[in-house]
Nucleic acid binder design. Structure first.
Length: 345
DNA sequence: AATGGTTACAACCGCCGATTC
DNA sequence: TGAATCGGCGGTTGTAACCAT
C-alpha cells in the first residue's frame, strides 16, 4: 500500500503567507532542516498549510541568499540564450543563476523579457512592412502551412532562412558563454566551432525530402520522432528546427544562424527579430493559432481539430546533438512520439 | 480623487517520474 | 508487482501595486 494522504485539503490554508507563518517555517527549517519530508513539516510546526506549499514558500522566498527582482543585463543574456537553447526548463536555467529561483526566472521571462523582445520584434516587423508597402500579411511566409496538394503529404511550412549575410560575424558578447557551452554539453548538445554539422545524425526530414541516415534507421523501425528544436553549434552555425504534428501531419521548420549572430542577438536583446525572422510563432501565439486552425480546417486535412488539441503539440525547444540526445533530453511534453510519418510508411 | 487598465509576482494546480509500502 | 504518495517541475491564476486617463 501507499502512504498517508498528503494533507487534508479542507483544513489547509491557501493564499498569501503571513509574516508569522514565514517566521515559523523559517525558524523551524533553520533549526531542524526539512527532515526530508515536506508533507509532515506543517504538522510539526503547527502550520495549516500543505507541505507542497511550505516547500514552495521556502524554496522561492524564505531560503537564504535568494535574490528578488533587479535582473542584470548579464542575467538577461544568460536567460535568453538558455531559453533559446533548452526552452522553458526553468530549473535548469535557475541552476545557472545563483540566488535565482525557477519561479522568479519564469515570472521574469513571462512578464518582462518576452514582452520586451516581442515589442521590439513587432516594431521591426511594422517598419519592415511599411518599407515593403505590405499592408497585412505580417511576414506570413514565416509559417506558411501549405495546404496539401496530395493527401498524406506532409504540409511543410516555407521558412526562409534569415539573411545570414546581414548578420555580424563578431564574437558573441554574452559573458557567460563558456558556462552556457558547458551546460549545453551536459544537456547533450554540442557547442564547438569545429564540430561537424549534426543534421545527418538527426532524425530529420527537411522540406527537400532527403532522408538522413538516422532517419533511414528509424524508418526501418517504423517510426520517427517528434522533437522541438535542434541546435547545432558547428561551423559557427546554429540551426533551430521545430517539428510538430498537426492534423496527423508532421510540420517542420528550420532556421539557421551563425553562433556569432546568436551572440549578437542575445547581447543586443534583439534576437527575437533574427530568431523569429523565420518563426514568429515562437511568441505570437495568436498568429500561429490562426494559421494552424486554418491549415487544419483545410479540406485536405481530413479531420477537424481545435486549438486545445493542437496547442499541446507546440513543443518548446530543446538541446539535442544526436538522436539519443533527442530521446534523452526530450521534455516530458515532448515525449517521443510514435508518429506515423505520412508518405514514409 | 476615482476609475480602469496594466504589470509584477506570489501562490496554486496538475502532471510525471521516483519512491515507498 | 502494483497502488499510492512524494518531490519536483512548468503552466496558469489571483491579486496587490502601479500607471494613465
Amino acid at each position: 500500500m501507499g502512504r498517508a494522504p498528503c494533507c487534508d485539503k479542507a483544513n489547509v490554508k491557501k493564499g498569501p503567507w503571513s509574516p508569522e507563518e514565514d517566521a515559523k517555517l523559517k525558524s523551524y527549517i533553520e533549526q531542524h532542516g526539512t527532515g526530508g519530508n515536506w508533507i509532515a513539516l506543517p504538522q510539526k510546526i503547527g502550520l495549516k498549510r500543505c507541505g507542497k506549499s511550505c516547500r514552495l514558500r521556502w524554496l522561492n522566498y524564505l531560503r537564504p541568499n535568494i535574490k528578488h527582482g533587479g535582473f542584470s543585463e548579464e542575467e538577461d543574456n544568460i536567460i535568453c540564450s538558455l531559453y533559446v537553447s533548452i526552452g522553458s526548463r526553468w530549473s535548469v536555467i535557475a541552476a545557472q543563476l545563483p540566488g535565482r529561483t525557477d519561479n522568479d526566472i519564469k515570472n521574469y521571462w513571462n512578464t518582462r523579457l518576452k514582452k520586451k523582445l516581442l515589442g521590439k520584434h513587432r516594431k521591426e516587423l511594422q517598419a519592415r512592412n511599411k518599407g515593403n508597402g505590405v499592408v497585412k500579411q505580417e511576414n506570413n511566409s514565416s509559417l506558411l502551412l501549405q495546404e496539401n496538394s496530395v493527401q498524406q503529404q506532409p504540409c511543410w511550412p516555407q521558412i526562409p532562412a534569415p539573411p545570414l549575410s546581414s548578420l555580424t560575424t563578431q564574437t558573441p558578447s554574452f559573458n557567460d558563454q563558456d558556462s552556457i557551452r558547458k551546460l549545453l554539453l551536459k544537456l547533450g548538445g554540442r557547442f564547438s566551432d569545429d564540430y561537424q554539422p549534426i543534421l545527418d545524425g538527426l532524425n530529420l526530414q527537411f522540406p527537400n525530402g532527403s532522408l538522413s541516415s538516422t532517419q533511414q534507421i528509424q524508418e526501418e523501425q517504423g517510426h520517427v520522432g517528434s522533437f522541438g528544436c535542434i541546435n547545432s553549434f558547428g561551423n559557427n552555425q546554429v540551426q533551430f528546427g521545430q517539428s510538430n504534428e498537426y492534423c496527423g501531419e508532421l510540420v517542420q521548420e528550420q532556421v539557421s544562424f551563425t553562433s556569432a549572430a546568436i551572440g549578437e542577438m542575445v547581447s543586443t536583446n534583439d534576437y527575437s527579430q533574427r530568431l523569429l525572422g523565420g518563426s514568429e510563432f515562437f511568441y505570437e501565439e495568436e498568429m500561429i493559432t490562426d494559421k494552424i486552425m486554418g491549415a487544419c480546417a483545410s479540406p485536405s486535412c481530413g479531420q477537424s481539430t481545435n486549438w486545445g488539441e493542437t496547442s499541446s503539440l507546440m513543443y518548446p525547444p530543446l538541446v539535442a546533438s544526436n538522436f539519443e540526445g533527442v530521446r534523452q533530453e526530450m521534455p516530458r511534453e515532448c515525449a517521443f512520439q510514435e508518429l506515423s510519418y505520412p508518405g514514409t510508411q
